[in-house]
Amino acid sequence: MDHLDQLEQQSVYIFREAFRHFERLCMLWSIGKDSTVMLWLARKAFFGHVPFPLVHVDTSYKLPEMIAYRDKLAFEYKLQMVVGQNKQALDEGDTFPIKLSKNPGMSKEEQAINRTKCCGRLKADALGATLHGTGVRMRMNLVTGKYEIDPDKEPYTGVIVGARADEEGSRSKERYFSPRDKHDNWDVGDQPPEFWNQFKTDFAPGTHVRIHPLLDWTELNIWEYIKRESIPTVSLYYDQGEGTRYRSLGCGPCQAPIKSTSKNVDDIIAELKSGALRNVAERSGRLQDGKHGLEELRRKGYM
């Protein structure tokens, strides 16, 4: 058993515990490399099946390739694909790109504030509403491949999320099973103990639990696993000849590619092993993070 096997087996165990204990279980799928590895691990855990819905929050600013890839995989794997969106914010034009277009002279600080706000509305709020069932959920019809309004409005009580401890500071404090209170808040200072593989699977009405099967994985592990299992990924991760690629996927207007000539999975693994990216935070291309931006978004329930 090598290290990747060990990570895989622990993740599978976590998936099965989650499926057993949460009748209202779903998994967040951001289309990125981590949650796609999660999707694969779910199929490992359930012998080729994914017995719970996948939830994607569509900010409308995702690159078209991501959406195409999402729908292709969902259709192929026969996934219960649920999509949520903050329609109101989009209709009101309350987004960073629209505000910036109206006020092109916006200062860097103002930009940063507006980016975080935009994330708050398009991601955190939309996610909350989708999870609680208060917002409209669209579900893929697996015959036609089209999205239809999901009649199911019940809240989810178990939410599987692809957080990794090595991503950035606040994530290193997560548990495998991490409770969120009625307001989706994460009380970092007062988390329940996690003995061995006995997780927090009992929860009070109105609260929910976030489940983190990838907690122990590193970015390198993710890529090594993608290679080993031949998991399909979006082409945005690879240099298409311009000497840049995305390392972490977000919304078009708020992400910058990194300089890299990695053209395929092998190149990326070599690049990560070489230490060339060591001094660049993985999410450095994600412009909304800021100093405590992500931590704040997390408290609010975003990922």
Partner: peptide, 11 residues
């Protein structure tokens, strides 16, 4: 482990 109400209380 021992669970009391909703939380692991001991082990």
């Amino acid at each position: 482990v021992i669970v009391d109400e909703y939380d692991v209380a001991g082990g």
